[in-house]
Amino acid sequence: MTHRIATIFAQEFRLARRNHWVLLATLILTLFALALGFFGAGQGAGLKADVLTLTSASLATLSVYLIPLIALLMSYDAFAGEIERGALGLTFATPVRRWEVFAGKLLAQVVAVAVAVSLSFMLAGAALATAFGTSPEGLSAWARLVVSAVGLGAVFVAVGLMLSAFAARTARAAAAAIGTWLILVVLYDLALLGGIMASGDGAFATRVFPWLVVANPADAFRLYNLAALDAAPVAGIDGLARTLPFPPETGLAAIALWLMAALALGIYRTKRIVP
């Protein structure tokens, strides 16, 4: 079992590397993290917070858009493309289990995203710490950001793979991935904002709304990072982070639940693929 998963992992990770996904993602994330850190450094004095803490807040807000997109782009073709090219039938004809195929691909792409995220954020974090100094709060905020960003990437890799297994055609899988990104990352927030503006300060705002926010993996990620910060300026939905009816770690739990759900659904579907 482990040998077969390791074989799938090795091939998938090699492909992610050869397709320059890891390099590209690392570059993009490093550039954005450095840009946010150095351009945002000016406000630090006025807000009495160190640069790492401030940057972790702004980077969390940006990562919500960027990391899911990178993860979905990396994963959407993994099953659909192989079904279209006839390669999956060959894999399925060997004694490998279907769930092992899904798990192997998932592991490889999660590791690819994790390498890109942690490498770029650690590089940027080290550069910022060297330039502006740091504090224990800043370091722990940065560590939370890196860990939860890897979690966020893992969720969207799993969702992308699951969609890929369902779509069975590259074009359809791409459409599903972009649609999912739009809904979970963009439209969901807009709908919630609309809801809160319509309901005012009623029961919706205090009881239902926070749960709706944390139910979305992207918002859960942002909430987890912002709720733990006292000094960072937050606005909009993120203002909610001040008045949560649950601890910030709920956000991490939501991410873990999404990962489990996407994994289960993906394996369920992979077992039913007729290649």
Binding site: A6, T7, A10, Q11, R14, L15, T94, P95, V96
Partner: peptide, 20 residues
Amino acid sequence: VVTFPRSLTGREVLRYFTGL
């Protein structure tokens, strides 16, 4: 019809299938 990933070498493709 079978198309192996273009960026892999022939040896790597065989490594994958012997592994499986």
